[in-house]
Design a protein around this nucleic acid. Sequence first.
DNA 1: TATTATACCGAACAGTTTGTTCTTTATCTT
DNA 2: AAGATAAAGAACAAACTGTTCGGTATAATA
Lengths: 188, 188
Amino acid sequence: MDRRQQKTRAAIFTAFTTLLTQKSYSKITVQDIIDTADVGRTTFYAHFETKDDLLKALCEALFQHIMDSAKDCTHTHGLYTNDQPESIFCHLLQHLQENDHHILELLTCDQSGIFLRYFQDSLSALIESHYIEPSDQFVVPRDFLIHHISGSFVEMVLWWMKGHQKYTPVELDQYFRCVIAPILSKLS
Amino acid sequence: MDRRQQKTRAAIFTAFTTLLTQKSYSKITVQDIIDTADVGRTTFYAHFETKDDLLKALCEALFQHIMDSAKDCTHTHGLYTNDQPESIFCHLLQHLQENDHHILELLTCDQSGIFLRYFQDSLSALIESHYIEPSDQFVVPRDFLIHHISGSFVEMVLWWMKGHQKYTPVELDQYFRCVIAPILSKLS
DNA sequence: TATTATACCGAACAGTTTGTTCTTTATCTT
DNA sequence: AAGATAAAGAACAAACTGTTCGGTATAATA
């Protein structure tokens, strides 16, 4: 890919994430992005059709990164093991806490909905790719179960953020185990 | 309150919800609302400062209505009883399914985040107001527990909607019991 | 009923933002 | 070195925003 394209693309992404930490998505204008990225108006529209398009591209890049990292984790040890303190959820939480790509800011911004959906869809796909056997006592549809796990995890992260990370990733992981484990026969 | 004020306020609310079923929140302009409601430009700004302000007012009106209905339900029977098939959650689901105020459309619109937060906050307050004793085996903080219940319920509703209400409120309620009950000592 | 207050309307406005078109300049590829 | 591609800059019409003003209809009050 052309070096020039990469540069401008990176400049726009950086400008956008920087702006997102300063003001809410809805208040950020294309003009702001152009000014911050120091990029020509024409150039921006050559890369992205709209502001929403940019947001989408950013989401895809970010969560692909996050989930790839999580997948690496599942190669070495299973999706969730009790003896091993570092579950995939704990790993995700720690990865998020590092906040190297300002994901946490994005998750709590006013337009967080878009990011949350991406986050959850990625997570659902990850959980889906591993077989989860529901506990015999609790008969719920498979899709319901997967969504419940990914959904409550995403919700938990959001709540964690809003409370300014009052708990550590390890603590949170433990709590999450408590509320999820009883449903699954493999854990508990 | 002045009859004229009520009329215009109602006209604006109606126009707004109508538009929300047609296009996404971010694409709706104040101009659209003015045209649809057939209201003077000045009049709109006399009632609401911005479009966001209108959205907020609508949320407050809607969820107050929903939660009042839920509270009535808890007066007669407890928050959650096993013998009584109609739990408060089931009641909420049925109420939502009626969709008399187009809440379901709002929950799945592109700006659903705002509505979801209102929904969850109201629900958290409702759950908070009733004492929930966590099961002895599972030691999780009270705030975590309350958030987990309200959060996963809201998530479930959203998922339910996106799947075009594949399950009935009674079925969903049953599934929700399955995944929530083990955590609570009072139920199960 | 007459008066006063209030809500609404319509037009016009300045300021922004958006997305496009054009020409010129810089940079990459071969 | 030559052709292709990307970016910059200026200028543009169209749309939206939020406000101001003067005039009109409707409510409350005396």
